[in-house]
Design a protein around this nucleic acid. Structure first.
Lengths: 130, 130
DNA sequence: AAGAATATACTACAATCGTAGAAGAAAGTC
DNA sequence: GACTTTCTTCTACGATTGTAGTATATTCTT
C-alpha cells in the first residue's frame, strides 16, 4: 500500500515516464507498463526492467511475484512526487519560495486570457469554500 | 551579450547554484562567484572552475580573458532558464500542460490564505491592466 | 629577480542514468 | 516431452554529474 514516504527522492526523466504509466493503473507487470508508455518511447523490454529494478532499489516502487512474473506498484503517490519535484524546482530556480514561482507563472509566463480566467475561477472557489 | 538561445538546455542542481550567483552580477570571475555562492556550499576553487568550463562547453556561459584571468557571463537569461525548467517539469510531471500544474498549485499545494490573496491580487492586476 | 600567491589546464574517479545484450529459468503449446 | 515464448537476473558500457588533486603558467610583492 502506498505510504507517503518522507525522503526527498528525485525521479529522473525516464523514471517519470515509468511512474506515470504505473500510476495510471496498478499493480502492473513490466509487460503492461511498456505498452502504456507514450508511443514515442521505444525501450527494449530489458531497459524497462532495469529501470524498474532501480526504482525498487530506491523504494519508489514495490515488486512482488506472481508465478515467475513480477508485478509492481508505486510506493509514493503522484501528488507526493509532484510536490517533491515542485519543491526542487523552487529551491533551484525560484529562490526556494512559492512567491517568485507564482509571480513568474503569472507575469512572465504569459498565460492566455482563458488560462487566466480559469485560474481566477479556481482561486475564487477555493476562497469561498473554505 | 545574452541572447535567448533556443535549445532546451538543462541545468543540473549545482549548475543552478552557479548560474544564480552569476545572474546576480556579471561579468564575474570564478573568485567572485565562489564568494557569492550560498554559504552552505563549500566547493574547492577547482571544482567551480571545472563546472564553469562545462557550462562554457554547453554554451550556457561565455568566457573571456582579462590578463590571465577568465571572466564569465551568462549566455541565457534567468527567465529563459526558468521557462525551460518549468517546461520540463510540466512535461514530466503534469501531463505537459499548464492547466494541471496550476490546478495542483492551487488545490493540492495548500496555499496559505495570504498566498491565495496575493495570487488573486496579481491575477486581477494583470487582468485589468491589459 | 626570487619567492609567494593566484589562476589555468589537465586528469581522475566514483555515482547515477540511459540503454541494452546474453544466459538461463519457467511456462505455454502441440 | 520438445519447442517456442516469455521472464528474470547479470553484466556492460558510454555519458553526465559531483568533486577535486596536480602540475604548470602568470603575476604580485619586496
Amino acid at each position: 500500500m502506498i505510504v507517503e514516504g518522507e525522503g526527498l527522492m528525485r525521479l529522473s526523466e525516464s523514471e517519470w515516464q515509468i511512474m506515470n504509466a504505473l500510476w495510471q493503473r496498478y499493480p502492473a507487470s513490466a509487460r503492461e507498463l511498456i505498452e502504456r508508455l507514450p508511443k514515442n518511447i521505444n525501450w527494449a523490454y530489458t531497459t524497462l526492467k532495469t529501470m524498474l529494478t532501480r526504482l525498487v532499489a530506491k523504494n519508489v516502487v514495490s515488486e512482488r511475484k506472481r508465478a515467475n512474473t513480477s508485478i509492481y506498484e508505486p510506493l509514493i503517490t503522484r501528488s507526493k512526487a509532484r510536490r517533491n519535484a515542485l519543491q526542487s524546482l523552487m529551491d533551484q530556480a525560484f529562490d526556494g519560495a512559492m512567491g517568485p514561482l507564482m509571480h513568474f507563472l503569472i507575469e512572465d509566463q504569459k498565460l492566455s486570457k482563458k488560462q487566466r480566467q480559469e485560474l481566477l475561477q479556481l482561486l475564487q472557489n477555493e476562497n469561498s469554500e473554505k
